[in-house]
Simulated scan of single mutants.
Amino acid sequence: MRGILEEKSSRMDAMELQIAQLTAKVIQLESVENQNKILMEEIARLNEMRKSKDFNRANEIMDQPKAIGQMPTSCADLIKMGHNLNGLYSVMGIKSVESVYCDFTINPSDPGFETWIGHVDVKSSPTYFFVRRGEYFNGTRTPILFDIETLNEGAAYDKTTGIFTAPVTGTYFFTLSGSAAFPMTYYQSRHFFHIGLFKNEEVMAYAFPDEADVYYQYEAFSLQSTVELMKGDNISIQIVSMSVGVSLVTGLYTQFNGFLLQEDVSQSLNW
């Protein structure tokens, strides 16, 4: 009996030792978990401090406006110049002025700090014209003189030379519509009228009305062209060739007009 009791007591001691060991391991694991939690909280606190420091640095920059030596190209440039109110701003793009929305309440590196809106239609020299020819004309290989000016904003078209001179670098649109007068023919024959729009000495577009076996007939024509022009480039309308007796109908029947679509502001400002 005594031996049995001693054996049970020994087993109890062993179990208590195991329980004590397991308890120690649990306590150790809880300690590690608490340490990990404390570490994660510290990391989060340091990240917040870093963000706050960056934001404060941005605020310091805004509080100390300075010249950047050029036109602003972004919200970041606007911050440097001292802007701190959220809103739409105009900045310089590659060729044109652009509109952006700046949110100065967030960090410059965060998404949404700058949102691109679109292009701003800025023209340093508004340019558009609408002209007509008042008198009979049948000259070839020479600019047609459209001597009746209905519109000539910017005075880029010269009615004394028949030449449009681009005041700024950019994209332009031109259109010509008119009529050619074909005389009566006594035999089977074909009359033609060949007219073109020229950029300097290079043809950009042609119109080619023609008729066969006519009896004093008008033939309508039109041409359009969108062209890139450098400042100082010339545009003119010239009759390339035509049959004998054919002529350009004048008055309200023939009109030439054009306008500046988009200016390359970077060239105008020597950007």
Rank of each mutant, 00 (worst) to 15 (best):
M1G: 07
S9M: 06
M15G: 01
Q18H: 01
T23L: 00
V26R: 03
L29V: 13
L29R: 11
V32F: 12
V32A: 12
N34Y: 08
M40L: 14
E41N: 14
R45Q: 14
E48R: 06
E48W: 01
M49V: 13
R50M: 08
K53M: 10
R57V: 11
R57N: 09
A58Q: 15
E60F: 14
D63G: 09
K66Y: 02
A67Y: 00
A67H: 04
I68G: 04
I68F: 04
G69R: 03
P72A: 03
T73H: 11
D77K: 06
L78K: 08
H83I: 13
L85D: 13
G87S: 13
Y89E: 14
Y89M: 11
V91H: 05
V91P: 11
M92T: 03
G93K: 07
I94Y: 08
K95H: 13
K95C: 10
K95P: 04
C102S: 07
D103A: 09
F104W: 04
T105P: 03
N107F: 02
P108T: 01
F113P: 05
T115E: 15
T115K: 08
W116R: 13
W116G: 05
D121H: 06
V122H: 02
V122I: 14
K123D: 10
P126F: 09
T127D: 03
T127K: 00
F130M: 12
R132C: 04
R132D: 02
R133G: 01
F137R: 09
T140Y: 00
I144K: 05
I144C: 04
L145I: 04
F146K: 08
D147M: 04
I148D: 11
I148K: 13
L151K: 10
E153L: 10
G154Q: 05
A155C: 02
A156S: 07
Y157M: 01
T161A: 02
G162S: 05
Y172S: 00
Y172Q: 01
Y172I: 03
F173H: 14
F174I: 01
T175V: 07
G178V: 06
M184H: 14
F193Q: 09
F193I: 08
G196P: 06
K199F: 06
K199R: 15
N200V: 09
V203Q: 06
V203P: 06
Y206K: 03
A207D: 03
P209Q: 07
E211P: 00
E211F: 07
A212M: 11
Y216M: 09
Y216N: 12
Y218E: 13
Y218F: 10
E219D: 07
A220R: 09
F221R: 07
F221D: 04
S222T: 10
S222E: 02
S225Y: 03
T226V: 14
T226K: 12
L229E: 08
M230N: 14
M230V: 04
I235G: 05
I237A: 07
I239T: 03
V240W: 03
V240T: 11
S243N: 02
V244K: 14
G245E: 06
V249A: 00
T250D: 02
T250R: 01
T250I: 00
G251R: 00
F256A: 04
G258T: 08
F259M: 11
Q262P: 01
E263W: 06
D264W: 09
Q267R: 12
N270C: 02
W271V: 03
W271R: 00
